[in-house]
């Protein structure tokens, strides 16, 4: 009898929960340690460019969204494991990732650069302030990379593991620099400041935001900013079999780019427009 009453109560509860939600809940994972893209604020709440963009996209898709934080190095396996339905974590579209997951239309371009200590020999990396696309300005980029190879010989360079920055270092500086992989960009920034690292490579907007803080006084961006190529474009990561959600995200992203929402949010959080071009 008691058990029956419990079942009835459970059924009632399930019915009311289902009725109160306006459609299905889409769970979106982010890293929460990649300011200003996504990070935990002083109150522990997730915030940043992607959090606001996710809210915008969900409003357009007319779904309720729940944003969860997930360690970067497990973020794709946990998507596969259905812990959540989408990834918005400054994730670049790479051929390797496309083997396991699918991507929406891009909502940002990946731009990456080097940060070094200003008083170190690397403070004078060539091409500071310049931007090269590894796709369309290949020759210029190659010249700069060749110059940097000489300067980075034997230097210790930190990157976050499993990122396009680590792919970039492995592609161009594999046997030249000593590449160390970290769990987060914050950790490699610590080691840059302590002198364990000679340089770090990460998303330029993330580095710029970190360098603004007092604890990174004495460090600066150096050398050119690279885009395209291994850095690619940034998009929502989705399970391969989830084409319905992909279609929704595609439409919402296209609309948000078309009406200037992505540009507005980008300029708010990064001070530059990282909207995908073309």
């Amino acid at each position: 009898m008691k058990f029956k009453a419990f079942l009835t109560a459970a059924a009632l509860l399930a019915a009311t929960t289902a009725a109160s939600a306006e459609g299905p809940v889409v769970r979106i994972a982010t890293e929460g340690a990649y300011a200003p893209w996504n990070f935990s604020g002083p109150n522990g709440k997730l915030q940043g460019f992607e959090i606001e963009l996710a809210d915008e996209l969900c409003a357009r898709m007319k779904v309720k969204c729940e944003i969860v934080a997930q360690n970067w190095d497990g973020i794709i396996p946990a998507l596969e494991g259905r812990k959540y339905d989408a990834i918005m974590a400054a994730m670049s579209v790479t051929p390797q990732r496309e083997k396991v997951i699918s991507f929406s239309t891009p909502y940002a371009a990946g731009i990456n650069g080097f940060a070094v200590l200003s008083d170190s020999p690397l403070g004078k990396l060539p091409g500071t302030g310049e931007t090269y696309s590894l796709d369309t300005q290949e020759a210029g980029a190659k010249t700069r990379i060749d110059e940097m190879k000489v300067l980075l010989k034997g230097k210790v360079v930190g990157v976050q593991g499993a990122t396009t920055a680590s792919t970039f270092m492995e592609t161009y500086f594999q046997d030249i620099a000593d590449i160390r992989e970290y769990k987060t960009t914050e950790e490699h920034n610590f080691d840059l400041m302590s002198g364990r690292l000679d340089a770090v490579v990460a998303n330029a907007t993330v580095l710029a935001a970190a360098l603004d803080k007092p604890d990174m006084k004495g460090a600066q961006l150096a050398g050119p900013i690279f885009s395209g190529g291994v850095f690619g474009v940034i998009a929502v990561g989705l399970r391969k079999d989830d084409s319905a959600l992909k279609a929704k995200f595609d439409d919402a992203i296209k609309a948000a780019i078309a009406d200037g929402t992505v540009k507005r949010l980008s300029e708010k959080w990064f001070k530059v427009d990282v909207s995908p071009r073309g």
Binding site: D73, G74, I76, P77, E80, Q96, R97, K99, V100, I101, G161, A162, E181
Partner: peptide
């Protein structure tokens, strides 16, 4: 192992 997973996504 962590590095291999990040390359293969096969935990």
């Amino acid at each position: 192992a962590a590095k291999l997973i990040s390359q293969s996504y096969r935990p």
